[in-house]
């Protein structure tokens, strides 16, 4: 008797559990399907067509867009420019953020300090870009006025091929480093005090302790933070659009600006989709390599 009742009840309970789970998952899954999955599939499809904005019909052109892409100098230039931007942006930002996180962790993690560190992040990208556009103006900006008073030559921060990308990268370091520092600070807080104390007792100096103990234990958090910030960094668009619009010539024409320009100004939607697919593949590879290299799913604490 008992066995049969168990037998009938269990599938019943399973179904109910499934329904409950489905009900909870549905909003996220529907959102994912409609706003992420469908556009992704459509993007892949469009990359094989000659689809144009404002023109309803389009034809299958096979790999034509990809062939065009491989012989497009502006595309390759855009990739290099974006890579250069990511290198400067992530390099400087990560070092600064680790420094800030370390200071926050060592000195005080007071709420006031944490809030102060966050403030640049609270401003919109466009506002920050506009602000620095004025600060870095060649003739009328305060930056060059300041350089002038301390006896240095004014620099064309946003209007020379040499400075455009470093300037834009540093503008975004200024905005994002506090936020990144807070993520790392949270990571530092998870490192058990006894490990640090053990190092202290063993006669480890402050800097040695940071390099030999703290940093290796921070690795999983650092890996995750790097993946997020690098993907975010690859998506640089608005700061460039506001400050240099890709110039001088193509010196700051990052890949998203070029994709946007092809899709919405020149209406070559198929070609822009092909470049997006290429970028997707690059980011996927970068992410996988990074996760492997930094062994993000293993913690040395375990």
């Amino acid at each position: 008797m008992a066995a049969t009742s168990m037998g009938t009840r269990r599938p019943h309970r399973d179904v109910r559990q499934w329904l409950t789970a489905a009900a909870f998952l549905a909003p996220a899954m529907i959102g994912f399907a409609v706003f992420y999955f469908r556009p992704t599939v459509l993007g892949f499809y469009n990359s094989f067509t000659d689809k144009e904005l404002l023109r309803p019909e389009s034809d299958w052109v096979g790999l034509e867009n990809y062939r065009e892409m491989i012989s497009d100098d502006v595309f390759w230039n855009a990739l290099w420019v974006t890579g250069y931007y990511v290198l400067v942006n992530i390099g400087v930002q990560t070092i600064c953020a680790i420094g800030i996180a370390w200071v926050l962790d060592r000195l005080s993690g007071s709420r006031v300090m944490r809030t102060l560190v966050m403030t640049p992040y609270l401003m919109s990208n466009v506002v920050v870009a506009l602000l620095f556009l004025w600060i870095l103006d060649f003739r009328l900006g305060v930056m060059n006025a300041f350089l002038d008073t301390i006896g240095l030559n004014p620099q064309p921060w946003l209007s020379s091929k040499e400075w455009a990308i470093p300037s834009i990268a540093l503008i975004n370091v200024w905005r994002h480093m506090g936020y990144t520092a807070l993520l790392l600070f949270a990571g530092l807080q998870t490192i058990p005090k006894d490990v640090k104390e053990a190092a202290l007792i063993d006669g480890c100096g402050e800097i040695q302790r940071f390099i030999r103990v703290t940093l290796p234990l921070l690795r999983p958090v650092l890996a995750v933070v790097l993946v997020i910030t690098i993907i975010g960094s690859f998506q640089i668009f608005d700061t460039v659009d506001v400050t240099t619009e890709g110039g001088p010539v193509n010196a700051s024409r990052v890949i998203y600006l070029y994709i946007f320009d092809q899709a919405f100004a020149r209406r070559n939607f198929g070609y822009a989709s092909a470049m997006s697919v290429a970028l997707f593949l690059i980011l996927a590879v970068v992410t996988i390599v990074q996760m492997r290299l930094l062994r993000a799913n293993e913690s040395d604490l375990a």
């Binding site: 556009p39 992704t40 993946v227 668009f237 608005d238 946007f260 997707f280």
Partner: peptide, 17 residues
């Protein structure tokens, strides 16, 4: 996450296309 971010062409908080 990488797929989603790459797919939507800069529509997250970092880049508004």
């Amino acid at each position: 996450a990488a797929l989603a971010l790459a797919a939507c062409g800069g529509d997250d908080d970092n880049g508004s296309a």
